[in-house]
Amino acid sequence: MLVTYLEASRDLCETDSILFGAALAVCRSIGAKLSTAGRATGQSSTIPAWRRRIEERIAKARALIGRLICFRSGNNRPRIVRTVRIAFTGINVSLSQAGKN
C-alpha cells in the first residue's frame, strides 16, 4: 500500500508526509513513542538550519553590543561587567580602557 502512495506522490513535501504518516502508523501499532514536535506547524522544516544558526549568532552579537554600549555609558552592574570581561578575554584591553570614550 505504501508503494502505491509513494509512486503517486508529486513532490518531496508530499513524499515526506506519506513517509511520516507510515512511520507514525508503525510506531502506534508497536506501541513506540514518537516525538511530533515541530510537525504540527511545519515551521522546523520551513527555516533551514543554517539560517537559524546565523540568526542566533546575530541575536547574540546584538545582545553583546548592547551590553558593551551600556558598559561604555557607565553601567557597572555585575552582569554587564561580567559580559564585558568575557568579551575581552584574551585581548590586551583592561576594563578601564574599554569604558573610555
Rank of each mutant, 00 (worst) to 15 (best):
A8V: 08
A22P: 01
T4G: 03
R39E: 15
R51T: 03
R51P: 00
A32H: 08
D16K: 13
R79K: 12
S29R: 15
R79Y: 06
I91W: 06
G38I: 01
L24D: 06
V81P: 01
N76T: 12
R85K: 15
R28A: 07
S35P: 01
L64T: 05
N92K: 09
Y5F: 13
A22T: 05
A61D: 11
G90S: 10
Y5Q: 14
I58G: 00
R28K: 11
T46S: 10
A32K: 11
F20C: 01
R62S: 07
L24Y: 05
R10H: 13
L24M: 05
A61V: 12
L2K: 14
N101P: 03
R67Q: 14
R28G: 12
S17E: 14
I65E: 09
Y5I: 05
V81S: 02
S44Y: 04
V93M: 15
G42I: 06
C13V: 15
I65H: 06
Q43Y: 03
E7I: 05
I30E: 14
A32Y: 11
D11S: 11
R82N: 08
I69R: 09
D16F: 13
A32Q: 11
A37K: 13
R79N: 13
L19D: 04
G38N: 04
S17I: 13
D16I: 12
S94V: 08
E55T: 09
R57V: 00
R57S: 04
Y5C: 12
A59L: 02
G21T: 11
K60I: 00
N76E: 12
S29W: 14
S44T: 06
N92P: 03
Q43L: 08
R39T: 15
A59M: 03
A22Y: 07
E7T: 04
C13Q: 15
D11C: 12
G74M: 05
A25K: 12
P48I: 00
A59S: 07
